[in-house]
């Protein structure tokens, strides 16, 4: 086992956990659904793994099927995730300027 490598990766993991907790805990309740949808899209990063297994050399039929299916799932996850999050966030608007109070740019 490559302990140096493993420990380095565990370090990355631990720091990522803290960054995640820090950033996410500041997201207001109003945006929790888009947040979940956005993180959903971000874990679509698994498509990177799917690309690696689907693009690998010397594969049997089973692996080709698994890899292609993984890319299919990953692509669905990434594209759908970001698009649907954008659709939601587009709807969040401030009160339009002509309103009586707390005017602002939309």
């Amino acid at each position: 086992m490559d302990y140096a490598n493993l420990i380095q990766q565990l370090t990355i993991l631990a720091l990522a956990a803290f960054v995640g907790f820090e950033v996410i805990s500041k997201v207001p309740q109003t945006l929790h659904t888009p947040l979940m949808s956005a993180t959903n899209a971000i874990h679509g990063i698994v498509i990177v793994g799917a690309l690696i297994v689907a693009g690998a050399a010397s594969q049997g039929t089973v692996q080709i099927v698994l890899g292609t299916l993984a890319v299919f799932f990953g692509a669905l996850n990434v594209v759908g995730g970001f698009v649907v999050t954008d659709r939601m966030l587009e709807m969040f608007k401030k009160k339009p300027a002509p309103a009586k109070k707390e005017g602002g740019t939309s």
């Binding site: 990355i12 993991l13 990522a16 960054v19 995640g20 996410i24 971000i42 874990h43 793994g49």
Partner: peptide
């Protein structure tokens, strides 16, 4: 970890943290 890919480690862990908080 399995693929030795740091982008997956970080992005996955951040989502894990977010889901846990929610």
């Amino acid at each position: 970890f399995a693929l030795g890919n740091s982008a997956l480690i970080v992005a996955g862990m951040i989502v894990g943290a977010s889901g846990t908080i929610l």
